[in-house]
Amino acid sequence: MTDVTQQGPLSPRGRRDMLSGAMLLPALALVSLFILAPAVYAIVGSFFEFTITSRNWVFVGFGNYVRAAGDPVFWTALRNNAFLIVGSAITQVGLGTILAAILDRGVRRGNAIYRTIIFMPVVVSSIAVAFVWILILDPNVGPLNAIVKSLGMRPPKLGWLGDPQISLWMLLVIAAWQNVGFQMILVLAGLQSIPKELYEAAALDGAKGLRAFRYITLPGIRNVLIVGTLITVVGGLKVFDLVFVTTGGGPANATQVLGTYSYLQAFRLGNMGYANAMSVVLLAIAVLFGWLQLRLSRKA
């Protein structure tokens, strides 16, 4: 009997499984080629010392990780990443939520126009955004300096992006400008999925305004906020292009992040192994946040 089933044509279920597998294959191949393989390569490479052109890989064990632990620039970069993560979570998710709430409740006319305008920077490439802001913040011809001067104040002497005290804050502003629209759309979708009747029931129960926000809105968009925060966190971790184009990590590493520092080590200084080790640290942190998000949203 067993022979018959093995030699005969596939059962409908077997055929379905085969078909499902075949359809997954292209995606699996692409993920393997462009995500899994480089990740494995980076992890393996982090235990070696090599340059991009060298044939000889020298095994150093955890040497690269030890080196990172003792490298003050690594810690500066990590701290800057953390600053951008926390800052972005507050500005992007916070501001996105406020904008979404205003568009959901307060704005009656031109809702779609406002939404489009706020969302527009999301679809613009980070490089273009960076160049636009370089122009805006330019100490000689930038409109920001002109505005600040016209208000009777003094713009920073070293420029908005040249002053180590200000430059990271400016990156935070640029990132917020670029991404707040995305968070707004995300929260807006969440807000609009809350039935109107819930607010009416809450009004009858004595919860209006802030209390309705606390007891109805916030729990209603909890998962959306978790996802939004995670996206911001991951964005803050892997930020590269914006920093690379605007400040290149300077001045004096004031805006150095792990992305730009890894690039510097890998392609300018030829320390591929060390750069890999930093990337692996970044990956580990991202995986941790991903796991946290999964746990939180499952709990909800």
Binding site: P195, E197, L198, E200, A201, A202, Y215, I216, P219, G220, R222, A300
Partner: peptide, 9 residues
Amino acid sequence: FQNYALYPH
């Protein structure tokens, strides 16, 4: 309410 309007959370 017709659709109950119970607070889901």
